[in-house]
Design a protein around this nucleic acid. Structure first.
Lengths: 234, 234
DNA sequence: ACCTGAACACCGTTCAAGT
DNA sequence: ACCTGAACACCGTTCAAGT
């Protein structure tokens, strides 16, 4: 009896908030593949089925985790012009995603947007409209930004560290690669020469992200200034 | 004895080619989530362990499936200018991916690029270099295109059909959504009005893909013409 | 009313035994 | 040498029994 009471008292009462936050912590620490309902229950000191009191199923758990990540994105700066404000906000989203590397994969696996995601999108549209962009242009801009608005890049093979064109192989095999893929070798050689300070990939992810983001934003601005319309393409 | 001989004769001899092609067919028909080693073995009329004679593990199976998809991408047209040739090739990649909707997810899950993927990237770099782009610009262009070179879009919640901003809900709840997300509602209302002919999403995926692809390609061309360099940003 | 153990229907893969 | 059944260590979730 006493033992039983002590056991109950020792563990903090489970609630949805604590379930979600522990799931986030687990994914942050061990990656999303280490997160299972059974593993999460173990971490919380309960039996797996106890979780189903607070989340309907694993999908709802993942939805809740997405909400936590998206809520970390800074509010828009009302004093900046639309392009600067959008840029800053997306860079803030990227920082949130760097804190939670599993966020990208999980967000992309969702079937439907959660309320927080919809609110973020609504806010983003509002920023573009406040900048004077037409509804038409805003619509296509939202498609063009796509999940980049959450700070996703669209790079190759970055999930697990190194990008495809980046070579962490010994120089011996690099020569062999050059024989088969001469163009890749040329680019890699140049990149590693220019940016030798960057360890690992040899590429500056932040630079690459801003490079493509700015290319798109500049394109949007150009279309806006020339009063682009989808019915009369230039 | 006779029965046994008949059983052996009835099933075509297993080989790597047939294992991979059957896996592709299964994924095409039932989605990637229906593809398991056990399910694939069943389809081929063998015991699960028989597959491990032809592929080391499931990862290698998925690699092989990626190779099949990427090999379907058309070769570059040597007579077109670089921008047109790149554009055509990426649109061909997109068609391949539309035939194998699981391709995106599987390709993104790979840890390292397969030989066919590397060859495709090498060829893409070659096209840019032939167009006169500097190694420096080519490098950053490759990052900026990223997985879009395989025909991936970066749209939201498109995996399972409808994009986030698209409303397939009854009009009654649309009004409720408008109260909470007025900016989304405004864009959706306009889009469904303009493109009422398109069923489902109300958005023309092909148009959106080409819109952002051309924005990027035009940006690349502009940087090339003004002799852009990463060491001296404009 | 609440909690929970056992069970179900799956996974990918290992391993040892059988032919 | 080749093939294969059983087993291992997992999943998410259901369900009925226990308190």
């Amino acid at each position: 009896m006493a033992l039983h009471a002590e056991t109950v008292a020792r563990r903090a009462p489970l609630n949805r908030e604590r379930v979600l936050q522990t799931a986030v912590d687990l994914a942050d620490a061990g990656g999303i593949e280490d997160l299972s309902m059974r593993r999460l229950a173990q971490e919380l000191g309960v039996v797996p089925m106890a979780l189903y009191k607070h989340v309907a199923n694993k999908e709802e758990l993942l939805d809740g985790m997405v909400e936590i990540v998206v809520r970390e994105i800074d509010a828009p700066d009302p004093d900046s012009d639309w392009k600067t404000a959008v840029r800053q906000r997306i860079l803030s989203a990227r920082r949130a995603l760097l804190r939670h590397p599993w966020g990208r994969r999980v967000l992309e696996s969702r079937n439907a947007p959660t309320p927080t995601v919809l609110a973020y999108m609504d806010s983003m549209i509002g920023m573009l409209r406040s900048g004077g962009l037409s509804i038409d242009l805003t619509h296509h801009v939202m498609h063009a930004i796509g999940s980049r608005m959450f700070g996703f890049s669209q790079e190759l093979f970055t999930e697990n560290g190194s990008a495809a064109a980046d070579v962490t192989l010994p120089a011996a095999t690099l020569a062999q690669i050059a024989a088969i893929y001469p163009n890749i070798a040329e680019v890699v050689a140049r990149a590693s020469h220019d940016e030798a300070s960057v360890v690992g990939s040899g590429c500056d992810d932040q630079f690459e992200f801003e490079f493509s983001l700015d290319l798109l934003l500049d394109g949007f601005e150009r279309l806006h200034l020339q009063r682009w319309s989808s019915t009369q393409p230039s």
